[in-house]
Amino acid sequence: MRNVAIITKRELRGYFATPLALVFIVIFLALTSAFAFYVGGFFQRGQANLSVFFAFHPWLYLLLIPAIAMRLWAEERKTGTIELLMTLPVSTAEAVGGKFLAAWLFTGVALAFTFPMWITVNVLGEPDNGVILASYVGSFLMAGAFMAIGSCISALTKNQVIAFIVGATVCFLFTMSGLDLVLDFFRAWAPDVLVETIASMSFLTHFQSVTKGVIDLRDVVFFVSLMAFWLFANVIVVEIKKTS
């Protein structure tokens, strides 16, 4: 655990040493607010809640998380620092964990900076703060799942652009898998069990159930196990890629 913390610290330092952190946070805040106010009609709805604000999170993450994740391993491989990192006395799992954790915490920081939204609804009315808190937790968990997918895919290539496009596509499929767009494709031929399994993989479905204000254990387990799965795959990919 100590090594994970050291790597996380180094990575986080890296984010803030370059304009990356600033650019990401500013864009994230600008987009979340813009979507909530203009597309979601935050004021027009006349309701003191943040549901329109959170509704756009999956779509923003779709764009922004793969952008953070793409560099995690691809850059490390491109610059050769992976050789340095993997010959330090740390295990592959510790390195994967540390890098992932830093990226996830970083999105957490960006998410935390949206706190003026929370203050705003509290000034304007009397929102259910429990629902808002649950939504924040859900959003953070979803960000982690997106990040784990992106991290694993980043380890597959040296090329950050490829890492971004493939990462975003896989994230897109996971987001949309509950919608007819994806399901209709399977309904035509696949057994119902498979269709339901695919539907149950949907980030959107799980996230929406959390934003209703109930942190259902099943939703938490879904996101956490998804992260565990993709990070496990990430460790294997790093090991395999290193050897070839």
Binding site: R10, T79, G80, T81, E83, L84, T87, P89
Partner: peptide, 17 residues
Amino acid sequence: KKRIGYLPEGAPTYGDM
């Protein structure tokens, strides 16, 4: 790895540090 000091080819280091 604890007992080795290793300088990889090209001496890669984290450029942003």
